[in-house]
């Protein structure tokens, strides 16, 4: 009797445990949402943990009034080119390194990976001076180039692993049918890499959109700042309107959430990249 009883109990245990975990996971998000709907005086007088006395959309109006639309626009102006450029360049590099007998290809790949292990803080000052020399300091183009460059190594490495899994027979068949190297890349390799590209794309979008360090290093003009430093700018030296910052954070999360929901199908299959080998 006991085994069947245990078997009946198991899903219950599983669901209670997972339900609790999920609730714990969602609690901070719920707290941010509630905070964004409260007034500052209410928060200051009664604390974050108290029950709200009333709910209002005022903080959202304040956040948007402080120029958050412009900041989100700036973020997209930086993020979209970075994601596109990264994926195009990384997929080309990965294809070349995975399918062509380029001398030092292994060294190149390791070098790219090693570059990723360097902490970004180490590069801040040299890169700042470089962008100044090239005349792209305090411009979106400069940030786009730098963010593309710092991410490229990692994406190439992941795509390289994925492309090595594409059977040689397919690319060879295309070549026999007269496809050029670029044709094979465009018509065979790219479509087959789509899940990995989508997964990496949504990752790249999140990372670039949430970047703060490079933005505050390479940009100075308030009107060009993306949304992360703009939210930082809402903090006072001593006091911050928690409700307005919470509202601004909720708004800033919307684009990433949309991208993630749109690509989550690929994202989950993308997580399995290389796992079947």
């Amino acid at each position: 009797m006991t085994p069947t009883k245990a078997a009946r109990l198991r899903p219950w245990l599983f669901h209670t445990a997972m339900g609790t975990l999920a609730a714990l996971w969602l609690l901070p998000l719920a707290l941010v949402l509630v905070t964004s709907l409260r007034t500052f005086d209410d928060l200051a007088a009664r604390g974050l943990a108290s029950l709200p006395t009333g709910l209002t959309f005022d903080s959202y109006r304040q956040a948007l009034g402080a120029g958050e639309w412009r900041a989100i626009g700036n973020s997209l102006l930086i993020t979209v080119p970075v994601v596109v450029a990264t994926l195009v360049l990384a997929s080309m590099a990965a294809y070349a390194l995975a399918r062509h007998r380029i001398p030092f290809r292994r060294t190149l790949l390791l070098l790219m990976l090693a570059g990723n292990l360097l902490p970004a803080q180490l590069l801040l000052i040299p890169v700042l001076k470089l962008t100044e020399r090239f005349g792209v300091f305090d411009s979106r183009i400069g940030v786009i180039v730098v963010l593309t460059a710092v991410g490229l190594g990692f994406y190439t490495f992941v795509l390289h692993g994925f492309m090595r899994g594409i059977p040689h027979e397919i690319t060879q068949a295309a070549k026999i049918d007269g496809a050029t190297t670029f044709g094979v890349y465009l018509r065979i390799v790219l479509p087959l890499t789509k899940p990995a590209l989508a997964a990496l794309g949504s990752l790249a979008f999140t990372w670039t959109f949430n970047d703060l360090l490079w933005a505050i290093t390479l940009l100075r003009d308030e009107t060009k700042l993306p949304v992360t430093p703009a939210i930082l700018g809402m903090q006072g030296q001593y006091f911050s309107s928690w409700n307005v910052i919470a509202a601004a954070t909720v708004l800033a999360a919307i684009p990433t959430v949309i991208v993630f929901l749109r690509f989550q199908r690929y994202f989950i299959s993308g997580l399995l990249i290389g796992s079947a080998k």
Partner: peptide
């Protein structure tokens, strides 16, 4: 006018 959050200002 160009405003930057105090901690970032100090760092920059």
């Amino acid at each position: 006018l160009n405003t930057m959050e105090a901690a970032a200002f100090q760092q920059q």
